[in-house]
Design a protein around this nucleic acid. Sequence first.
DNA 1: AGCCAGGACAAGT
DNA 2: ACTTGTCATGGC
Length: 267
Amino acid sequence: MNYEYFNLKDTLECGQCFRWNENPDKSYTGVVSGRVVNVKQNGNEIIYDCDKVFFENYFDALTDYELISQSVTVDDVMFRAVDIGKGIRLLNQDFYETVISFIISQNNNIPRIKGIIEKLCEKYGEHIKDNFYSFPTPEKIAKLSPDDLAFLRAGYRDSYIIDASVKIANGEINQDIIKNAPIDEARAEISKIKGVGPKVADCILLFSGKRGEVFPTDVWIKKVLTHYYGFSSLTPKKINEFAYEKFGTNAGYAQQYLFYLARKEGI
DNA sequence: AGCCAGGACAAGT
DNA sequence: ACTTGTCATGGC
């Protein structure tokens, strides 16, 4: 592997995942698919305490990110974004966890998102060891009422979390469509969940389904478009045209680089 | 203290 | 198809 295109810190702190934390020794510990994983990077060496196949799948280690990052370096802004974020890898994340996490993310900030998710896991996940808990199953959350989630302090998102859990547990959401159907059909399928609008849908498609053709547009990306690309109006149609013409089917990767750039430069 | 956060929704042009 | 007010909470 080319470690110029694998940076653990950037990958885990670029906002695509919420259950990893840095330790005093600079390693990271996270809970993934019911197991506690510790990973550390020393330059051109990655040390992990989990199964190799599992690691390579989760961290997308067998994909050529040099090729991807070069394909989206189409202007000066992208050159800077790739220079900063070329070590980011798109994680292969669990579908249900991604749905719930990004429902919680709406109109919210990252530290609070992480806190709400941890509280959800502590209460309704399975205890693994120490203070680590698995992400709960949709079947377990589907049986609850919004009042059972009030302790999360997630506000109006409580009913969205339950709606998503019910529809995923009972098979109403077809994950084969989300994974394989044309992107508009996939987006429509995931949007059947209350609280899943265009932006959250695209995050789920990108971070769980590896659908690289989407371009999740949040407040940071809107800042990028106005500050760096001179957009005066930000209609969904114009943004989609921009993303597809510039980046094609790698728009989602470009979006991650731009998101990371915007947050690092604090525009 | 007040603005803001990886927005969605309903109701209105 | 686009615009606006509202939503619950707490980080900063």
